[in-house]
Amino acid sequence: MSKYSDKYLISEWRTAPKRAIRDGVGEALVKIGEDERVVVLSADLAGSTRVDKFAETFPDRFFELGVAEQNMAGVAAGVAFTGLIPFMASYAAFSPGRNWEQIRISIALSKANVKIIGSHGGVATGKNGPSHQGTEDIALTRVLPNMTVLTPADATQCQTMIEAAYKLVGPVYIRTARPETPNFTKKYDFEIGKIEKYREGRDVTICASGIPVWESLMVAEELAKEGVECEVLNISTIKPLDRETIIESARKTNKVITIEDHQIAGGMGSAIAELLGEEYPVPIKRMGITDKFGLSGEWEEVYKWFGLDRVSLKKAVVDYLHE
C-alpha cells in the first residue's frame, strides 16, 4: 500500500500542473455567490486577489471600496450584522496587517460573520519585497479569540476552504499566495479543524502549510530512497488545531519539524510547539522566516535565500535527524 494518501493527493501529484493558490478564490466565490447573501469587498486589489471573477459574475454584490483596508474591515462587519456574508480581500500584509485593530474589535470581538482573504502570503510574493510580503499574518490572526485561521496548500484546496468558510458562521482568515505552484491535491469536502495526512512515515513528522507542503512531500520522497520515512501533515487549519492528528503523529515519530513561509515567531510552527509543549513534549524544529524581513526578488530565489527551498528543507530534516 502506498505511503501517500490516495484520498487527498492526485495520482500525478509529483508532476502536477501549476496554478497559483490565489486562483482558487475566484472560482469558489463564483460558486458560493449563487447564494444571494454572499457579498465581496475589495480594497483596490480585486484582480490580484482574484475576487474579480466574482465581480464580473455578480456586479451588484461586489463593492470596490478603494485603498482603505481599515474601513473595509468595518464595512464588512456592518454588512455581516445585517445577515449577509461578506468576503473581504486584500494582501495579507495590509489586511490583517494594516487593519488588525478593526479586525480585532469590529469583527472578532463582535463575532461578525466576515471572511478575510489575505492574498500574497509569505516571501513567495517575491519581487514587490517585504512591504508586500505578508509574513506575520498568521501570528496576527491566530491570537484573536473567535477567529478561525486557514492556509491552503494549493488552488484546489483553496476553493474547498472558501466553501467551508462560507458555511461556518463566524470570522475566518484564509491566507493565499501569489506564485504558480503545483496543484497537487484532490478536490474533497474540506473540514475546518481536520488536517490532512499526505504521507505516512515513522521517523519524523513534517508539519507544513502553504507552498512548502508540496515541497515537503518531494523531500519525503527523496529521503525515502535514503531509508528515512517522513510523515507529512498539511496543517491546513492553523486554528483550531487538529490536536488528535498532530499528537498521534508526534507519538509515533517523536520528532517534529515545522515548515512555513511566515515568521517562525507566532506562526503555524509556534502553534504546533505550544500544543506539543503542553500535551506531548517532543523535540521540535521550526523552519520559516527567522526574525527577518523578506526580500525583493524572484520568489524561488527568495525561498533559497531563506532556506525554504527543497534542498534546504531536505538538509534541515537530515541535520535534525542526526542531532
Partner: peptide, 9 residues
C-alpha cells in the same frame, strides 16, 4: 465604518 457597512447592506 460599521454603520456604513450596515447602511450599504
Amino acid at each position: 465604518s460599521v454603520a456604513v457597512g450596515m447602511a450599504l447592506a
